[in-house]
Design a protein around this nucleic acid. Structure first.
Lengths: 248, 248
DNA sequence: CGAACCCTTGACAGAAATCAACTAAGGTGG
DNA sequence: CCACCTTAGTTGATTTCTGTCAAGGGTTCG
């Protein structure tokens, strides 16, 4: 692996505190891969062979059952996925596919397990990462169980606005089809729900979102620290990727 | 703390591998508490002061938003809760209350954080616990997003049957009201859904469940390893407590 | 240029929440 | 021991919400 790439990985939160020797050991067997849009990286049910770390691009984590599919999260740069499966040496609970061109590192699960047993600093980083991921999913589950779909969308839009730096106008970072799946509804339903919000402080033009009345939207969404998150605690979080500010 | 109680705790999966010195340090400031049915132990939004470990009884973890409430999990003996919040030093995402008489240990979060930094064996146990808890919530979320409420109940009933040792007849370990909330529906809806399953391999008498046609029920539920779990990976799991076999 | 694919809209069917009433069981206090 | 109260559970009627099916417009990509 080229040294500049190693340096890039070394700076990620998961790897920056560990001993240099441990890091080198991990990188020994790690490999960088690039993939095109739609490429499947892992499939649910497979044994956990590799920990994946995203360097560039976005990866969708989704689950399937019978003939239904649902996206569980989108992981962006510096994010990791299926850490838990690797640690437990258990089958993946989710599948993963690239949403566009992406670049990532794969670290063999067995090495991972060996290293965090020997390097306490790394163990602490793993703990932090897992704790963050856990809280992310709990938040997601809370949103699903406590809010209606309209409330979920409204919250999502406000959350994205905040992540964009409290801008009133920004561009969604994912297609609506995926957003619908993430929020637990059909695309048709999302479409209608968005439309219904246009009388309540929202304006839409394709993927460009404009919040015209924050108060009214917030009245519907009731943004909540304990669901929407203060800030993404784990990089393996919601349908993230800081949204793009609208240049128009 | 009495020595026999310490021994009991020492045998729990989270604490059994750590150094004796670390264990003693933790127990130094730990306290055992007992509580009665309905007692609130923690409230969502509060700062994470203590890690809780259940010794006896059952604790309900639930979330609130606006005026709605939903059960997220039930933790039984040997289970822990809000580990992640303690580690992140972040506010609790869920509240907890006792479902009956319960006995548990509280370990100050600051001690916890200090100890797993010094004791690698303990760190590994924490990692295992967190990874299991993460996978539990992911399973829960998958069930919510991919299955209809009828399918969720059917799966739940089969799951409980398996946990009871593949018995055809057993008794639900929680009241239906709570079960409904856990499965993401109203009590009325649960009642109706259960009734509708009585034509499809199920017989009910109060809390006593009898599976009369496993095949037919399974056709509805499509039990799935990746949702229903091979076995409870973390004690902090679904609405657990191995169900009681029906003695009648 | 055509073939996918995303998004939207409408009409409909199905699922679930809500409102209300009623039963049954358990606990309390007289 | 019984009357009373509370609460879980059920059932019915109704409304609201959501998924499904189908069609059409727009865009991208080969």
């Amino acid at each position: 692996m080229p040294p500049d790439q190693k340096r890039e990985i070394r700076h990620l939160p998961l790897f920056c505190d560990m001993l240099l020797a441990s890091f080198e050991a991990l990188m020994q067997s790690a490999e960088t891969i690039t993939c095109a849009s739609g490429d499947r990286l892992i499939e649910q049910g497979e044994p956990a062979d590799y920990l994946h770390v995203v360097l560039e691009g976005a990866i969708e984590l989704y689950a399937r059952w019978r003939d239904r599919e649902s996206t569980m999260a989108v992981v962006g740069p510096a994010g990791t996925f299926i850490l838990a499966a690797c640690i437990r040496d258990a089958p993946y609970l989710m599948s993963a596919r690239a949403l566009g061109r992406a670049r990532l590192v794969r670290v063999p699960a067995s090495d991972l397990r060996a290293v965090f047993r020997r390097d306490p600093e790394f163990a602490v980083c793993v703990i932090q990462e897992l704790a963050g991921a856990y809280r992310s999913v709990v938040r997601h589950a809370k949103g699903l169980k406590l809010r209606t779909s309209r409330e979920r969308i409204a919250s999502y839009l406000l959350r994205q606005s905040r992540q964009a730096g409290d801008l009133d106008t920004y561009v969604l970072s994912v297609e609506k089809r995926l957003l619908a799946s993430y929020l637990g509804m059909t695309p048709e339903n999302l479409s209608r729900a968005l439309r219904s919000l246009e009388d309540h402080g929202l304006k839409l033009d394709g993927l460009r979102v404009t919040i015209t009345d924050r108060t009214e939207l917030a009245a519907i969404a009731s943004p909540d620290w304990l669901i929407d998150g203060p800030d993404p605690e784990g990089a393996t979080g919601g349908v993230g990727l800081p949204p793009v500010a609208s240049t128009n």
